[in-house]
Amino acid sequence: MHGQDLLRQDLCRIGRSLFERGYVHATAGNISLRLDAPDGGGVLITPTDACLGFLAPEQLAWVDAQGQQRSGERASKTLALHRRIYAAAPDARCVIHTHSTHLVALTLQGVWRVDDILPPLTPYYVMKVGHVPLMAYRRPGDPEVADQVAQAIEAAARRGTPLRAVMLDRLGPVVWGPSATQAMATLEELEETAKLWLMCRREPAPLSQAQIEELRCHFGACW
C-alpha cells in the first residue's frame, strides 16, 4: 500500500495549503483523490467535520470501488457527490470542495447567470476554469446534489464544453481535475475571479466573442 501512503500524505498537504491560504476555514470543505487498482481502487476522502489544515494520513477514509469504507474515520458527508463526479468525469483524479469567501458571497448577492456564475472577465478564467453553473441550494450532503452535478457534467460534455467546476448555492465551489495541482489551480482562478468581479462592483464588460475565439484558436480554450 506504499502508493496509497504517499497519496494520503499528498492529500494532507493539499488540505493544509488550502487552510493556510484561507480557501477553507474551521471544518468546512472536503477533498478526495481517485485511487488506481494497485493502490486499492476507490477513493481517499477527508473525514466528515475534519479541519483540512490539521489532517493526519491515518484519519483519511478509504472507500473502495463498491462504496464500502475500508479504513479511516467516517467519510465526508459529500462522499456520494465525489463518487458521482469521478463516474461522470473519467479524467478527474482529484475533487475539492471549499466554502471560499468571495464565491459564497457571489451567490448571496446574485450570480451573473445560472449557467455561468461569472462572466468571461480574463483570459485565464476562460482558459483555466471555463463555464461554472450554479446548483440550486440543498442541505450539505443531500444526495440530490450528486445527481444535479452529474447531469450538468454530462450535458456539458455533449456540448463540447466540459466542466471543471460547479458552484453550490450558499455553500461553495466543487472543482476537479486530472491532478490535485490542476484542481487547486482551477479553484484558485475561480475564487480570484469572483473577488475581482465583486471588487469592481460587477461593472467590467466580459471579453468579446472575438477575443474568446482567439483563446480557442491559440490555447484550445473550451468556452
Rank of each mutant, 00 (worst) to 15 (best):
L106T: 02
A157G: 06
L171T: 06
A65G: 14
I14N: 01
R93I: 08
R202Q: 15
A157W: 08
L118R: 01
T181S: 13
P57Q: 13
D64F: 12
P47Q: 01
W223Q: 00
F54K: 11
K195Y: 12
I212H: 00
H131F: 03
S179G: 07
V174S: 04
R138C: 12
M1Q: 09
I153C: 04
G67K: 13
L190C: 08
P140F: 14
R8T: 04
S208C: 00
R84K: 15
D39W: 04
H25F: 10
S71C: 13
L106F: 07
R83G: 08
A88M: 13
C94K: 06
G53Q: 12
D64Q: 15
E213P: 03
P204G: 09
E214G: 01
R70D: 05
S76M: 15
A89Y: 06
T186C: 15
V43M: 14
A37P: 00
A165D: 02
D116S: 13
H97A: 07
Q109A: 14
K77V: 15
Q109I: 04
A155C: 02
G22K: 07
V104S: 08
A56S: 09
K128W: 01
T193Y: 01
V63A: 00
A28Y: 10
R201M: 10
A92C: 13
G220S: 03
V129Q: 03
D10W: 05
V149C: 09
I96S: 00
D142A: 10
Q69C: 14
R158H: 04
E213R: 08
L18N: 03
L190G: 04
Q209N: 07
E20M: 10
L121F: 02
P47T: 03
W112V: 02
H131N: 06
H102S: 11
R138N: 11
Q148I: 09
A89M: 11
T122F: 03
E214T: 09
A185F: 06
L168K: 06
E203P: 01
A185N: 09
G53L: 14
A105D: 07
E192V: 02
V129E: 01
R216V: 11
R16T: 05
E213Q: 13
A180P: 02
V174A: 13
Y124R: 11
L33D: 00
L18M: 07
R16K: 12
D64R: 14
A157I: 13
W197M: 01
R13W: 05
F219Y: 14
L207F: 01
A75S: 15
F219N: 07
Q211K: 08
R74D: 09
R201S: 09
L187F: 07
A183E: 04
G160S: 02
G53E: 02
P206D: 09
G141L: 10
M127C: 11
L168A: 05
E192Q: 14
L196A: 08
P162T: 14
K77E: 13
W112G: 01
R16F: 05
A146M: 10
P173A: 12
Y86E: 10
R93T: 08
